Simulated assay, not measured.
Amino acid sequence: MSFEEEWNGLRAEATTRMRLNEAGKGSSGGGGGSGDLIVHQDDLGRVGHEAFLLHDRLKKAGDMTRGAKDDGSTIKAASTLTNHHFTLGGALTTMAMTWNDQLKTLLQACAHISNHLDYSKKSQAHTDAKIAADMARLDGTAMPVSEISKYYK
């Protein structure tokens, strides 16, 4: 391969890389004009908030078998049927217990999603701040690309 061919290949590769580095600065959504990596965490917050709201709604609406003081209509009916020697009473008790177990599992899943996304949002903000501090010079100015590229060799 001649010098000219190799040189033209390297120039084409560099041009492609520069175009990729500039992608996203237009109206298609990327960072603003600063070229900084910016992570928007609004989506994490919205999903976590929806999981929290779902948890509250499920806790209120799904607790129909137990009632306010463990005397919900399902449990009362099961107890009354069992006291009158109906087999259905035992089956209804089993159904109510299964319902409550499934409800607790679903509530735990909603709480886990909400808590995990809250943690992820805070953790990402902390990581972003640490990276920004690590990538700055002592005087607070941005580290030049030539210094950054040393970390990747």
Rank of each mutant, 00 (worst) to 15 (best):
D118E: 08
K76P: 03
T87Y: 01
Q108M: 15
L103I: 03
L106S: 15
G90F: 05
L117N: 12
L107Y: 04
G90R: 09
L117H: 08
Y119L: 12
W99L: 14
W99I: 07
T87Q: 15
Y119E: 11
L81M: 12
T87C: 02
S114N: 07
I113N: 04
Y119K: 12
H85D: 08
S79V: 03
A109M: 10
S79E: 04
A111K: 10
L117V: 08
L117M: 04
M97K: 15
T80D: 05
L107V: 04
G89I: 01
H85P: 02
T93K: 06
M95N: 01
A77T: 03
K76W: 01
F86K: 05
T105Q: 12
T82C: 12
M97P: 00
K104G: 11
A77V: 03
H112W: 05
T105L: 15
Q102A: 14
L103R: 14
T94Q: 10
T98W: 07
T93V: 05
N115Y: 07
Q108N: 15
W99G: 06
C110E: 02
S79D: 05
A77M: 07
G90L: 06
L92C: 01
L117E: 03
H116Q: 15
D118A: 12
Y119N: 11
G89D: 02
L81A: 06
W99C: 09
A91Q: 13
D101P: 04
Q102H: 13
A78D: 04
T98A: 14
K104E: 13
T82L: 05
L88V: 10
K104D: 14
T93G: 01
G89K: 03
C110N: 13
L88F: 02
M95F: 10
H85Y: 05
K76S: 09
A96N: 03
A96L: 09
T94S: 11
D118I: 05
L117S: 02
T82M: 04
M95P: 00
N100A: 03
L92N: 10
Q102S: 12
T93H: 08
A78T: 02
A109W: 10
S79Q: 09
N115T: 09
A77N: 04
T98H: 13
H84T: 09
N115H: 11
S114D: 06
L81C: 08
H116N: 12
D101R: 11
L81Q: 02
H112I: 04
N83E: 14
N100T: 13
Q108E: 15
G89A: 03
T98Q: 11
A91S: 13
K76R: 11
Q108S: 14
F86P: 01
A109Y: 10
N83H: 08
Y119M: 13
N83P: 00
Q108K: 14
H112Y: 07
H84Y: 05
T82Q: 12
D118F: 13
K76M: 10
L106Y: 09
T98K: 15
L92V: 02
A77R: 07
D101V: 06
L88C: 05
G89S: 04
L117I: 09
L92I: 08
S114A: 13
T93C: 00
Q108L: 13
C110D: 09
W99P: 14
Y119T: 14
A96M: 08
M95R: 01
L103K: 12
Q102C: 08
M97T: 11
L92M: 09
A96C: 05
C110W: 03
A96E: 02
Y119F: 08
T82Y: 02
W99M: 11
M95S: 15
L81N: 07
L107D: 08
A111F: 03
M97H: 10
